[in-house]
């Protein structure tokens, strides 16, 4: 716990100095750790090296300014301590796959791809145990039917409300067995603006007629990378941050579809659920 708090304090220091020429040695000093011990402890707790975290956060804030302000690209680059525009462009392309000028011209760069600052809640979530280790496993084919909504507010609140609605509908379905339940978070990048959709659905048989009020979605036989989310729905964004900003950049795995698939346990009291992504070239 002492280390978690110290690393959270070091993140405060980093965040306050994203535009300053800070060093990893200064981060270590800020929490009275030696450089070596700090480097090891920071990596252990955040799953990023201190320098990697600093650079990713600088790039995320620079990208935000590129997308949402009219400031000159070169000014943004210098502000975030890149020595010249070329270094900035290279680092930007490596992380986001596009040039800063393309981001400025409105190329799709979803806010979710910009690494948020890690909070003490993130650190506690990451250090609950080894459950976030990814497992490669097949998923589907699945025929899902349920209710979809626009995510235009707090994701955990929307998920909880939607499932309450869906459970009421399912209660009248007249089948004794509890169906397998899936939630799919869909990044609808082809819509104007940044839009996420959420589908709360159950698995239905091929032959079962679907109520016209429901939407139907098929998950083909695919290779999925599965994580276990432990904790309440309110903590789900912490798991998603880990998948998008820590695990995915390191693994190099690309999403086959911009979906996050939750698979709920049959026992509602179980606070663990599977959270999967579909890996590219497997669909």
């Amino acid at each position: 716990m002492l280390d978690l708090e110290a690393i959270a304090r070091s993140i405060d220091f980093i965040e306050a100095n994203l535009r300053q020429p800070i060093t990893v040695a200064e981060m270590a000093d800020a929490v009275s750790y030696s450089l070596f011990h700090f480097s090891r402890t920071f990596s252990q707790i955040t799953h990023h090296t201190p320098y990697d975290y600093l650079m990713r956060r600088r790039l995320a804030e620079a990208a935000r300014e590129l997308c949402y302000t009219r400031r000159q690209i070169i000014d943004i680059a210098f502000d975030y301590q890149f020595n010249n525009p070329e270094t900035f462009s290279r680092a930007f392309k490596r992380v986001y796959g596009i040039q800063p000028s393309q981001a400025r011209r409105g190329a799709n760069l979803a806010a979710r791809r910009l690494m948020p600052r890690l909070t003490l809640a993130h650190l506690e979530h990451l250090n609950k145990g080894p459950y976030l280790r990814p497992i490669l496993q097949p998923i589907g084919p699945l025929r899902l039917a349920g209710v979809m909504t626009l995510v235009d507010g707090d994701l955990p609140t929307i998920i909880t409300r939607l499932w309450e609605t869906v459970e009421r509908v399912f209660a009248h379905r007249g089948k004794a067995a509890q169906p397998d339940r899936y939630g799919i978070l869909i990044d609808a990048a082809d819509w104007d603006g940044e839009v996420d959709l959420y589908l709360a659905a159950i698995v239905v048989d091929e032959a079962e007629p679907i109520d016209p009020a429901w939407v139907e979605k098929h998950i083909p036989a695919s290779q999925a990378v599965r994580f276990i989310h432990k904790g309440p729905t309110a903590d789900l964004p912490l798991t998603l941050d880990f998948i998008y900003h820590t695990w995915q950049p390191r693994s190099g795995v690309q999403l086959a579809k911009p979906w996050i698939i939750e698979h709920y346990p049959a026992d509602p009291a179980n606070d663990e659920r599977d959270v999967s992504i579909l890996a590219e070239n497997t669909v």
Binding site: S39, F42, Q44, T49, Y51, D52
Partner: peptide, 14 residues
């Protein structure tokens, strides 16, 4: 480099 890229634990994984 930074030997703790993969794991900071006292482990054989870094």
């Amino acid at each position: 480099g930074n030997p703790f890229q993969v794991s900071g634990f006292w482990t054989e994984e870094n």
